[in-house]
Design a protein around this nucleic acid. Structure first.
Length: 112
DNA sequence: CTTTTGACGCGTA
DNA sequence: CTACGCGCCAAAA
């Protein structure tokens, strides 16, 4: 059935998913995109970039596939993202990378 | 109207 | 490991 998938509904799905990333965990742009139909990693980036300043969507928990903050260095928000993640207990190595094997959100899976 | 400019990831070389 | 092209979208100039 040709249910229309408006861009806005895609963005909405992205935001819903990002909201589910728990405190102290991160997801990659590609990981979010993989869970949303008609979506790719870049679109997740666009969706994050278009959020208002006072959003309650935890945008800072989305990083690139290398575990790095993907916002342009020197900008206000890259520093903000680093601060927020550090505050949640996430650590960065000497190369400013997060260990995804340790902090990656595994979706709905429950670790027993 | 067109062009530019980004919060990306993957295949390929 | 790096470099490049491509897919894909929106807001601003």
């Amino acid at each position: 059935m040709g249910m229309k998938h408006n861009k806005s509904s895609v963005y909405k799905r992205i935001y819903e998913l990002v909201r589910r990333i728990p405190t102290g965990k991160v997801a990659t742009y590609g990981q979010i995109a993989h869970l949303v139909d008609k979506c790719n990693a870049r679109m997740v980036g666009y969706a994050m970039a278009s959020l208002p300043f006072d959003t309650d969507v935890p945008w800072h928990r989305v990083v690139n596939r290398k575990g790095e903050i993907s916002i342009r260095v020197g900008g206000q928000y890259s520093h903000e993202q680093h601060a927020l993640l550090t505050h949640e207990g996430i650590t960065f190595n000497a190369q400013k990378k997060i260990d995804l094997s340790k902090y990656r959100w595994l979706g709905e899976q429950e670790t027993i």
